[in-house]
């Protein structure tokens, strides 16, 4: 039995980033190779960019 793999490329280190299901725009992911925090900016095809640093008004 095969499992479909959803992947994208880390913009920081070019490694493959795996998703266990289809991500949504704005979803935060982490590259397991370089530990960069990434944000999904497009879902078709899945495109990642470095997630922004914490901003002053972020929080709970």
């Amino acid at each position: 039995m095969s499992t479909a793999t959803i992947t994208a490329t880390c913009p920081e280190c070019d490694a493959t980033v795996n998703f266990d299901r289809a991500p949504l725009n704005g979803e935060i992911a982490r590259c397991t190779d370089c530990s960069a925090e990434l944000e999904v900016i497009n879902t078709d095809p899945i495109t990642l960019e470095l997630a922004p640093e914490v901003e002053e008004d972020w929080g709970e």
Binding site: P23, L24, N25, G26, E27, I28, E39, V40, A51
Partner: peptide, 11 residues
């Protein structure tokens, strides 16, 4: 509504 989808939003 959201600006970034974290683990909490997925849950």
């Amino acid at each position: 509504t959201y600006t970034r989808l974290r683990v909490e939003e997925r849950m």
